[in-house]
Structure formats: structure tokens, C-alpha cells
């Protein structure tokens, strides 16, 4: 079987569920809204680029929900059996699912980056004057890639755990609590957590061991690992 028809099928499944579209919209909205709030509050030793992208911490929850729901809908009431009867090549099927999750997440993530930067710098006003054009571009692209990677991380984890609830139960507390708690300690293994590493790209001056792109590469490694584990689970287990 060719890949394109399978991808087409998976894309139809994503765009015909209202909850998927809501989750995508929520990525933009949550990120921009919290970036604006953070920019209002900006004071002390603050990083103007990260202030403009601060909302990503919240937008990523929507991205995770998007990735998890796209896969978890297959684990409800035998939906996976219908999918795999239509496409019995499981590896190809899961690859199509990942592309159907990753591409819209990346596109929406880039839009999120543009909107968040625009809103953030507008609210920051003079305090954003130090930002260069290349830093803004780097943050915007990084924001898109980061959000897509988080959506795919959730998709892979959901395929492994066969449950969206379990995935969200692990990822959301992790993103909202663990990272905030250990997040301030730079230069430790915490730098290599998927969210901490990937968010380096959103800072004007990177702290810690990783640079903007090496940080995203670390997040990508986590995502690839989750996707491979998910693919292994889909291929190995009875549907």
C-alpha cells in the first residue's frame, strides 16, 4: 500500500473531529494570552525573548492534548481494529498517524510563534527593544518545532500506554509542576528534560549546558524515543 492514501485517511480523521480543531486553536490562544500576561509582569532580571514566549508553557498543554487525543481516539471501542483492518501494515499506519499529528501541530506552532511574539513584544514595548530580528525568528521557528515535538511526544506515549488519560496524567503534571520545581536549577540533568531542553531556543541568552538548537535536538530525541516505543507497541500487541 502506498503511503499517501493512508496519510489522507489519517488527516481526514483529525480534521473531522471538533475536539482536535479546538485543541489546535487552544495552542495559539493559550500561548498568546499567557505571553501577554507575562510580558505585562516583566521585571527584574528578565529575558525579553522568553517573556514574549512565556505562554508556550501553557500552550504546550494544548499541544500535548492534541497529540494524545489524536491517538487515544483509536483506543476507544475497537476503533483501532477498524483502522488496522483498513491498513494492516501497522508501521506504515502509525507513521501516517504521526505525520497527520506532526504537520498540523508544526503549522499551528509556527502561527503560535508569530502571534505570541507579536503580542508579547507589543505588550513589552520598550523592554523588547533589545531583541534582534534573528532572535525573534529563532524563537518563532523554535516555538513551532517545540510544540510539534511535544504533540508527537504525547502521541507516541499514548500509543505505548494505549490510553490518553494515562498520557495526560503523566505529561501534564510533569510539564506544569516538575519542570517548574526543578526548572530553576540550571547546569544539572534537569537541562536534558524534554521541555527544559526544548525551551532553551525561546531564550535570548541560553543558560545551562545546551544551546538553542542542541536543546531542540534533545527534545527531538525524547520524541523519537516515544514514537518508536509507540510504534513497537502498535506492531507487537493484539489490536
Amino acid at each position: 500500500m502506498a503511503f499517501a492514501p493512508v496519510l489522507h485517511a489519517e488527516w481526514i480523521k483529525i480534521r473531522t473531529l471538533r475536539s482536535m480543531l479546538w485543541a489546535l486553536g487552544a495552542i495559539v490562544f493559550a500561548t498568546a494570552a499567557f505571553s501577554a500576561l507575562a510580558a505585562l509582569d516583566g521585571g527584574g532580571d528578565f529575558d525579553p525573548l522568553f517573556a514574549a514566549f512565556f505562554g508556550v508553557s501553557f500552550g504546550q498543554v494544548a499541544a500535548v492534548a492534541f497529540g494524545a487525543t489524536a491517538v487515544s481516539s483509536e483506543f476507544q471501542a475497537g476503533a483501532l481494529r477498524v483502522s488496522l483492518s483498513a491498513v494492516p501494515q501497522r508501521g506504515r499506519w502509525f507513521a501516517a498517524k504521526a505525520v497527520a499529528v506532526g504537520v498540523p501541530a508544526l503549522a499551528v506552532g509556527l502561527v503560535t510563534g508569530v502571534v505570541s511574539l507579536a503580542v508579547g513584544t507589543a505588550v513589552l514595548g520598550e523592554k523588547a527593544n533589545g531583541l534582534t530580528w534573528t532572535e525573534g525568528l529563532r524563537g518563532t521557528v523554535g516555538c513551532g518545532v517545540y510544540l510539534a515535538l511535544m504533540a508527537l511526544l504525547a502521541a507516541g506515549l499514548t500509543a505505548l500506554l494505549r490510553s490518553g488519560v494515562a498520557t495526560l496524567g503523566i505529561l501534564i503534571p510533569f510539564l506544569l509542576l516538575v519542570s517548574f520545581v526543578v526548572g530553576d536549577k540550571s547546569g544539572t540533568v534537569a537541562d536534558f528534560l524534554p521541555d527544559k531542553a526544548g525551551q532553551v531556543v525561546l531564550h535570548e541568552t541560553p543558560e545551562g549546558t545546551l544551546g538553542p538548537w542542541s536543546g531542540l535536538a534533545v527534545t527531538a530525541c525524547w520524541t523519537v524515543a516515544a514514537l518508536l516505543a509507540g510504534a513497537w507497541s502498535i506492531r507487537r500487541r493484539d489490536a
Partner: peptide, 12 residues
Amino acid sequence: ALLDAQAPHGSR
């Protein structure tokens, strides 16, 4: 094949 009538996603 029809295996389970509940399989189609309710929101679609």
C-alpha cells in the same frame, strides 16, 4: 468486516 458497531467515533 463488521466487528463492533460501537467502533466509529461518536463525534464524527
